[in-house]
Computed example of a mutant assay.
Amino acid sequence: MKYIKWLDKHFEMMLISITMCSLVVIMSSQVFMRYVMNASLSWPEEISRYLFIWIAFIGISYATKGDLHLKIDILLEYVSPKIQSMFAVLRDIAIFLFSVIMVIGGIDVYNNLSGTMQTSAALGIPFKYVYLALPVGFGLTALRIIQKYILKVTQKSKLAPENKQSVEL
């Protein structure tokens, strides 16, 4: 159970960190090979592009989990906290609906690419694995939004009896 809680808290950051470290090692080896050994490799640019795509889509989920997305909040400073929370819920609903649409579209693209045997030029990686980042990233985003509201509801239900007891006293 302790491992599952840790994984829930750090899953996206762990994936992004591993992918980013791989990206740094691969690109460093390309720089070394090109400028020190005078023999550039053909595959590092390709794989770094694909790793960066995965970082971007997993990063969407990470930003959603931490509520780190860019927001224009100048208008929210002039309204009450109740209206601010209403706008936050509307924002989360919009992000959730967009995520669901992107998951459905991403699965369609993945299925279409599974039918074709298109591969990348240098490494021969099937493109379906590159495009799988879309439904995975937005699927995690949708799950994080659902998780956020499940936690809100369960925390309110835990607090509700205490509030009733304090009111009755």
Rank of each mutant, 00 (worst) to 15 (best):
I93S: 01
D92T: 05
Y35A: 05
L97N: 01
K71P: 15
S61T: 10
I53H: 00
S42P: 01
I93Y: 00
T116K: 12
V25K: 06
G106A: 02
Y78A: 11
A63V: 06
F96E: 04
M102E: 06
K71I: 14
L51G: 00
F98I: 12
N38K: 07
K82E: 11
S85M: 12
S28I: 01
V109L: 06
S80M: 01
I104Y: 11
E45K: 03
L75H: 09
M86Q: 12
R49P: 10
L76Q: 14
E77W: 01
G105K: 11
I95E: 03
F87V: 07
F57D: 06
Y78S: 11
V109K: 04
E45V: 03
N111E: 09
R91H: 12
F32S: 11
R49A: 09
Q84T: 14
A94Q: 10
G66S: 12
G106Q: 01
S120T: 03
V24C: 02
E77D: 06
V89F: 13
M27W: 00
Q84H: 14
L70R: 05
F98H: 05
Y110W: 02
G105T: 08
S85R: 14
I101G: 12
N112P: 03
I104D: 10
V36E: 08
W43G: 10
L113V: 04
F52L: 15
L68E: 15
V31P: 04
L51R: 00
S80Q: 03
M37N: 15
V100K: 05
A39E: 09
D108S: 08
Y62W: 12
G105F: 13
I107W: 00
L90Y: 08
I74L: 13
D67W: 05
R49E: 06
F98G: 12
I55P: 01
I101Y: 07
P44H: 00
V31D: 04
T116S: 12
G106P: 03
E46W: 01
L113M: 11
I101T: 14
V103A: 02
N111D: 09
I74G: 02
D67E: 13
S28V: 00
L68D: 15
N111R: 09
Q84F: 13
A121E: 12
V109W: 00
S99R: 11
F98S: 12
S40Q: 09
Q30W: 00
I60N: 07
T116G: 10
W54I: 02
M102Y: 10
M86W: 13
I95H: 01
K65N: 01
D67I: 09
F98E: 04
L70G: 04
M33R: 13
N111S: 11
I83Q: 08
I58K: 06
M27E: 02
S61C: 09
V79N: 09
R34M: 08
W43N: 07
Q30S: 08
L90K: 09
N38P: 02
I55L: 08
M37F: 15
F87K: 02
M33W: 07
V31H: 04
N111L: 14
F32L: 14
Y62N: 13
I104T: 07
T116R: 13
K71G: 15
I93M: 04
